[in-house]
Design a protein around this nucleic acid. Structure first.
Lengths: 205, 205
DNA sequence: CCTTTCAGTGAACGTTCGTACACTGAAAGC
DNA sequence: GCTTTCAGTGTACGAACGTTCACTGAAAGG
């Protein structure tokens, strides 16, 4: 029913998409309200019917981006945590999602470093949540019995940092398959190196 | 002698400093030529006597930033590579440099992700060189005899990624000493974890 | 000393910016 | 059916933008 609210949401979606598309080339901070409006095909002032400012738009995109990221971890969690192929499976899920949600990843990669303060804060908060979840997942793995909670958090932080860097590298590889393949192979090796370190790690008492 | 060229270089320096100062708050892409000129205290058109564009200014800042970074690795290399405290020394040198060259690190952290394409490319190229140097340093460490060249590069990439993330975290800690202390402690632990992994690593034949 | 050089000036241009305000017209609600 | 609501319009504004051009005045150089 209700064509009225439907239409509003359709326009809202168009604004979000336009912002994502423009984010392919520059930061949110360098994108004008008028550019977004022109891309959508509405008059500049109509923008205000949906968002108070470009920053508010950015916060909505952060929410959206991390929502899609959560479906990603759900995909990784699916299937039992058999230790053997956990690395390969995690990375291939990551790579798939980077391709599938390319615009969102690109947006986050940019705004994480250069966005308005509120946006940066929201992103780093989400990444922190993400690290915490990874830490509880790791705690379920065999061999982590003797680990302190802090060491688990530190390990998670390292892994997330490496995976963020991998995602950024893939985005920067501009679709050249050979380059991307190398990046992915390196990521696999790095994750294995870290896990070898983890298996031989002794938490301080 | 020659007050003429001296004065020109002084103004050039003032422009670079102004851009660094403005970079504290936003990306280069969102900084206008007129803002820079106003901050320096010159008329907008005088800017062109020194740089063709904001992007050219950015490239100069990249050079400058990495030049200061090279003095950092020289500091780390100084002293023999006694394995025992190599982690602690490397990280404390990094932390010192982040404080000492705060504006440069902030600039690189932002522009690495959000700068104009040319600037981004220059930065990633410099980081790649940096990784290569680290790889040759690691090759001199005891215990890496059986490592393949590629694995050394992969390890270097992981370490540099973690150190870049650490630098960014310190910059984001806004000078709160307790937060920063924790970040540094985590970085130390992460580097040790990675080294434990490295010591137990077997390169494929 | 007289000329050349050139960092910095100042006015002017056509654009683009964010935002204000009054408006329209069709769907929603009574 | 009549009224209310509200997404989107259109005009208008002052401010900031990059860039042009002709200029000034002091240092450099013969």
């Amino acid at each position: 029913m209700s064509t009225r609210v439907e239409q509003k949401q359709r326009t809202r979606r168009a604004i979000l998409d336009a912002a994502l598309e423009l984010s392919d080339e520059t930061t949110l901070a360098a994108i004008s309200l008028r550019q977004v409006a022109k891309q959508v095909g509405i008059v500049p002032t109509a923008f205000y019917r949906h968002f108070d400012s470009i920053e508010a738009l950015g916060l909505a995109l952060v929410d959206e981006s991390f929502a899609s990221l959560r479906t990603m971890i759900r995909d990784i969690r699916r299937g039992d945590p058999a230790f053997a192929d956990i690395v390969d499976r995690s990375i291939s899920v990551l790579v798939d999602h980077v391709h599938q949600e390319r615009a969102h990843f690109l947006f986050i990669a940019r705004e994480r470093a250069a966005g308005p303060p509120g946006v940066r804060e929201a992103i780093s908060h989400q990444i922190e949540l993400f690290e915490r979840e990874l830490a509880t997942d790791l705690a379920r793995l065999p061999g982590t019995d003797a680990w302190s909670g802090e060491d688990l958090r530190i390990l998670s932080n390292l892994i997330v940092t490496a995976m963020v860097a991998t995602a950024e590298a893939i985005l920067g590889s501009a679709g050249r398959p050979d380059v991307e393949k190398e990046i992915v192979e390196h990521a696999r090796t790095q994750l294995r190196m870290v896990l070898v370190g983890a298996l031989n790690w002794q938490s301080k008492p």
